[in-house]
Design a protein around this nucleic acid. Structure first.
Length: 422
RNA sequence: GGUGAGGUGCCUGAGUGGCCGAAAGGAACGGUUUGCUAAACCGUCGUACGGGUUAAACUGUACCGAGGGUUCGAAUCCCUCCCUCACCGCCA
């Protein structure tokens, strides 16, 4: 979330930036400032009264030790009187702090100046394209047909075992999946990311830390018995590794990568674009996360974009990079680049990665800070990106590389897959 | 799941009602010494929110797993919850 001192000092800028995100409840900004004023006033009142209580209490201790019982009793009465005042002040202070916190949580992150001011996905700005869109012959079919033809994925079987949106990968489909994961991880590790294998269920505090709660509660599967959430992305457990930590500035940047399955309820998104692997409830993804010095986060962002672009080039997939407009960006993000690959048989662009700089929005929630020698702790910036989401990569690999004699795989995968073709 | 022990600062660990934001040691950081390394010695070595200041200095409050309670006063007593460890049971 945003920091109150920043809001106080930059109110006009905040309102201007929020307009880019089409944030309507601008009155909340004044409300925040008013609540903060109230909080300060109450804090002062409480602290001063409490200070009196404390010093009187010390005197009582001394008086008692000296055996001056009567004086002690008098003081005791005085303290009790002060404490009666204190109760209501404390209650109001707590309520004010909670209200401030809750209001603050409703304010999305400010988009960076590079973010275009559009509203819908049509307003996203294409930054560049790469790769070549293949020309398929007339007999070319979408990946769900290829999956059946080559016995790679069984969608109906998933229905039986669980429900729709839980495909079963089998045979060479399962092997390709494994090959991709292994390749992506190796690529990330080779570029300085430390591999983690985190839990797939997280507690409330972790879900809150990255912003899934309270905002996107309905998107996560919830194991109510233990109050754990199935992760919608590795971003959640991985970023939370550093929750409530103060690291040395020399430890930055922190670069982490993890493979995990991802679980998403995708409530309400039935019908469109859900065929085959386009949208599923459980999928595999390799994620990269960075925790960086605040002055270096845009450098890190560029680096991550280039990192993923190289990966798509290596996979020989046609892609485009979009800079999301204010209206299409997520709540917590300051800037987001989406990567889409072209799936040639469906003739559709499919999102396979999303790279975001959250600046200090997540780290303020999670209190991920750094400290230079003897300085005060400062918030770090956090970023993450998919590298990559598996299902749509697989869909486009299958569709784009189909030939009458089988599906050719890009060279980088040969040694991981153990073959050149499916 | 059962029984027992326990959760204190970066770590180890002392502290059972006021003199405790908290001993001591270690690590880390700065410095002195040193041909280098090591050692030795000196110093620093919390976080948040207020007040104060141009900024500091200075100063108040809170925090010893979390939340409540008792008390003039709680790391210390009581209650609830969470977690960790050990042993047993069960099981990958």
């Amino acid at each position: 979330m945003l920091q109150v001192p920043f809001i106080r000092q930059n109110k006009e800028l905040v309102l201007e930036r929020l307009a880019v995100k089409h944030f309507k409840e601008t009155a909340l900004i004044d409300e925040i400032i008013a609540l903060d004023d109230r909080r300060k006033k109450l804090t002062l009142e409480y602290d001063e009264t409490q200070a009196q209580v404390n010093s009187l209490s010390k005197e009582i201790g001394k008086l008692m030790a000296q055996g001056k019982k009567e004086e002690g009793e008098q003081q005791r009465a005085a303290v009790n009187a002060l404490k009666e005042k204190l109760g209501p002040v404390n209650e109001e202070l707590n309520a004010t702090e909670k209200a401030l916190h809750d209001t603050l949580a409703k304010i999305p992150n400010l988009p960076s100046v590079q973010v275009p001011a559009g509203k819908t996905p049509e307003d996203n700005v294409e930054v560049r394209r790469g790769g070549t869109i293949p020309t398929l012959d007339a007999a070319a079919v979408p990946h769900w047909d290829l999956a059946k033809k080559y016995d790679l994925i069984d969608f109906e079987l998933g229905n039986k075992i669980t429900g729709s949106g839980f495909p079963v990968f089998k045979n060479k489909g399962a092997r390709l999946q494994r090959a991709l994961i292994q390749y992506f991880l190796d690529y990330n590790i080779g570029n300085g990311y430390l591999e983690y294998a985190p839990p797939y269920l997280v507690n409330e505090a972790s879900a809150y830390g990255t912003g899934q709660l309270p905002d996107k509660e309905g998107q996560m599967y919830h194991a109510t018995e233990d109050n754990y959430y199935l992760i919608p992305t590795a971003e959640v457990p991985v970023t939370n590794i550093y929750r409530d930590e103060i690291v040395k500035d020399t430890d930055l940047p922190i670069r982490m990568t993890a493979y995990t399955p991802c679980f998403r309820r995708e409530a309400g998104s039935y019908g469109k674009d859900v065929r085959g692997l386009n949208r599923v409830h459980q999928f595999d993804k390799v994620e990269i996360v960075q925790i960086v010095h605040p002055e270096k986060s845009y450098e890190a962002l560029d680096e991550m974009v280039a990192h993923i672009e190289k990966l798509l080039n290596a996979l020989e997939l046609p892609y485009r990079i979009l800079r999301l407009c204010g209206g299409d960006m997520s709540f917590a993000s300051a800037i987001t680049y989406d990567f889409e690959v072209y799936s040639a048989a469906q003739q559709k662009w499919l999102e396979v990665s999303s790279v975001s700089n959250f600046e200090a929005y997540q780290t303020n929630r999670m209190k991920i800070r750094y400290k230079e020698n003897n300085g005060k702790p400062q918030l770090t910036h956090s970023l993450n990106g998919s590298s990559l989401a598996l299902p749509r990569i697989m869909a486009s690999l299958l569709e784009n590389n189909q030939t009458p004699d089988g599906i050719r795989l890009p060279e980088v995968l040969h040694r991981y897959f153990g073959d050149t073709t499916i």
